[in-house]
């Protein structure tokens, strides 16, 4: 037993084969992708996957994010049964059907968007979050439909809508159905705007392609987590097109603030406070529909 394991509580101490080999078991310790510090996983989770040392924002699951975002105890998941179909019978190296099944198994989600209704500091609110580990958080019919329903619900109840995006863009395997989700979601946002119901788009790492070019950039407020990659085209595509190395910090949150595309950057640990504050001002006197 090394010194680290000696000072750990028995519960956190690695058991079995991993302990016998003297290796760091997966899941208990995590190396920060930002500063390289070895972090105790439960502590990292308590700080919402943000490194307590350097502030690096690691990926966080959609469900975990929403549960942490809403006030405790009173969230309700919306439309959990919406599931993808395979309208094109699409097959590349794998069948789309098989990809769906694999992604569902790996993530426990039906598709790449989770929607919930709950309260933020006592104010009722609808929020959706992209699950990036489900096929890169790509937007197909289910994601578009769930977002549209969330927008319509927020509009009907005049609660406001918050969307946390983390996505590569439109889902290729659903072809033009996916593209049309851009038009569909944007139309629902237009209606919210007409009625003066606030929509806050929180762009997290990464948000690109068809999602960025629709619901992502259409927030009354566009907000970003630190150092998130946000853009229309991915950096690799741009590099291939222009054949030059991209400037440092290109397409990162700070770049987007500098170029006027994003209102402000929020640390994930401050998200509740900051969004509750701005919603408190925006949602105070809704205009009549």
């Amino acid at each position: 037993m090394n010194w680290l394991q000696k000072i750990m509580t028995p519960k956190a101490r690695p058991q079995g084969a991993a302990a016998a080999k003297g290796k760091v078991p997966e899941g208990v310790w995590e190396k920060c992708a930002g500063c390289g510090t070895v972090l105790y996983r439960p502590e990292l989770e308590r700080s919402l996957m943000v490194c307590p040392k350097c502030g690096h924002h690691h990926a966080i699951g959609a469900r975990t994010r929403l549960n942490a975002f809403f006030d405790e105890g009173i969230t309700e998941e919306l439309w959990p049964d919406l599931a993808p179909s395979d309208p094109l019978k699409f097959r590349d190296q794998k069948k789309y059907k098989d990809r769906i099944v694999a992604a569902q198994k790996a993530t426990g989600e039906k598709d790449a968007l989770v929607a919930m209704r709950g309260a933020l500091k006592g104010r009722s609110l609808v929020a959706v979050a992209f699950e990036f580990s489900f096929m890169g958080g790509s937007m197909g019919s289910v994601v578009g439909e769930k977002f549209a329903r969330a927008a319509e619900l927020a509009l009907a109840e005049r609660t406001g809508l918050v969307c946390f995006s983390a996505t590569g863009g439109a889902r290729m395997q659903e072809g033009l159905f996916s593209l049309m989700q851009m038009a569909k979601t944007s139309a629902t946002i237009r209606r919210m705007r007409d009625a003066g119901v606030p929509y806050i788009s929180v762009l997290t790492h990464p948000t690109t392609g068809g999602v960025s070019a629709s619901l992502g950039m259409l927030g009354d407020l566009n907000v970003a987590e630190p150092k998130a990659l946000i853009g229309f085209a991915g950096p690799r595509v741009i590099e291939q097109t222009v054949r030059e190395t991209l400037p440092e910090g290109f397409q990162r949150s700070e770049f987007l603030v500098d170029h006027g595309a994003v209102d402000f950057i929020v640390d994930r640990r401050d998200m509740r406070d900051k969004l509750a504050a701005v919603l408190g001002i925006m949602g105070k006197q809704p205009r009549a529909a």
Binding site: A183, R190, A213, G216, F232, A233, V242
Partner: peptide
């Protein structure tokens, strides 16, 4: 849409998104 540095700097995503939203009404 053009995938270039200047297009990103000037908000390619926002320009496309806004048109989708405005055309709907």
């Amino acid at each position: 849409a053009w995938p270039g540095i200047n297009a990103e700097e000037r908000g390619q995503s926002e320009a496309i998104a806004r048109n989708l939203m405005e055309m709907s009404e």
